[in-house]
Design a binder for these strands. Structure first.
Lengths: 212, 212
DNA sequence: TTATTTTGACAACATATCATGTCAAAAATC
DNA sequence: GATTTTTGACATGATATGTTGTCAAAATAA
């Protein structure tokens, strides 16, 4: 039998699966930096591999194609951001106001401290493909659901308006994201406090709308 | 002298400048359809020219490159949309509520009746390049300024909040746009009335915020 | 009719991309 | 030390793109 036996062997003290996940991790980190710095369009397979000091073979070991990398990265970063917002709100207090404010604060802090993540999430996803648009939609729904849960955490009775709750919270997330985009495109000129306050004000206004 | 005399001559009864602007117009129309149908990434120079039944030479007669076409198209469509919103509000009434509602109604009507324009404006601009991001920013500022003028048309006294007016209205436009994106990605499932009502509610809530 | 402008079809060139393949050197196993 | 796996550097192929150039046919003017 001349079959290649394909025995898995440790290399430099690491198992195969460890090496593979390390390389995958490294590709994700490097491509986030590259996309954050130059945009997805310029983050070609070669460019990512060069930046990661890995060869194309290892790219295709971890990802079927370039878009799969982008999708994985986007999912990872939006998930992480959501968890940070949840964690921040959990340490914040009890009232919906406190919860929402803490979550918004976490959001904009990440946008400021991780500009690469910000660019990926805020700019580089839309319009790439139908599949990525769908991913964007799902992520936005996730953020909308989260903020809705926080805002309605005390069980406010349903408001009687022709407005649809899902749409309103989608809109509020759209507002947050747009404020973020504007902040980034303005090179973070405004203070983070005023950015947070403006976004928070929209949530406050919406929550208090029925009480008028 | 063997110089090419380059005399301008009418052709098929049309002057040179007429023919040129016709071709430019045709390229713009065709590429809007192509981008709206397939996305900017697939609207290559060749694809646009084929669809327009014109050759590359005429593409470069009107545009320096592919991105210049996109920019021209985006500017044109956002401008037209703004004017429609202004026209609608002018015919609507006097109160800020009526003005804003009419403008929002015009916005979502266009998103529904011109899906190609919708896709261009809502999805295909962000992340293309630094220059296009800047164009997006400017257009969004334009819409924000417009909606702010309409909403504050009776001269409401300035609200005392830590929120920044520019940011708040940028956020509101972000909300409108995000509701539009969601509507499109949902294949326009929700009724236009409920879409308008949800966006309008955010404006109402913001306007009434101080009165609580 | 003859000369010139305009047009459209398409060739051509330089690049760039994704994706796969080759192969010798390094590292691990026997 | 000999064998096998793993690695990295690079070649390759197929395809696509932006952009410029060629040239004959159609339309106009003289």
């Amino acid at each position: 039998m001349t079959e290649t036996s394909t025995k898995k062997r440790a290399y430099r003290g690491e198992s195969l699966s460890k090496r593979q996940t390390d390389r995958r991790r490294h590709l994700l980190n490097t491509s986030l930096e590259l996309i954050g710095e130059q945009g997805y369009a310029r983050a070609t397979v070669r460019a990512v591999c060069n930046a990661a000091s890995l060869t194309e073979r290892y790219f295709y070991e971890s990802f079927q194609n370039r878009e799969e990398l982008l999708a994985a990265l986007y999912r990872e970063q939006t998930d992480a951001l959501q968890w940070q917002m949840i964690a921040a709100s959990e340490q914040a207090g009890q009232t919906p106001e406190q919860l929402v404010h803490a979550a918004l604060s976490a959001f904009f802090t990440t946008m400021r401290d991780k500009p690469h993540t910000a660019r990926l999430i805020l700019f580089e996803i839309l319009g790439v493909s139908e599949a990525m648009n769908q991913l964007y939609y799902e992520a936005m729904e996730g953020f909308a659901d989260l903020s809705r849960k926080l805002a309605q955490s005390v069980g406010t009775e349903k408001i009687e308006t022709p407005a649809d709750d899902g749409m309103v919270y989608a809109g509020l997330i759209g507002a947050v994201v747009q404020i973020g985009r504007r902040w980034v495109l303005n090179d973070y000129q405004q203070s983070i406090e005023s950015v947070i306050a403006s976004a928070f004000m929209l949530y406050q206004a919406t929550a208090h709308y029925d009480q008028c």
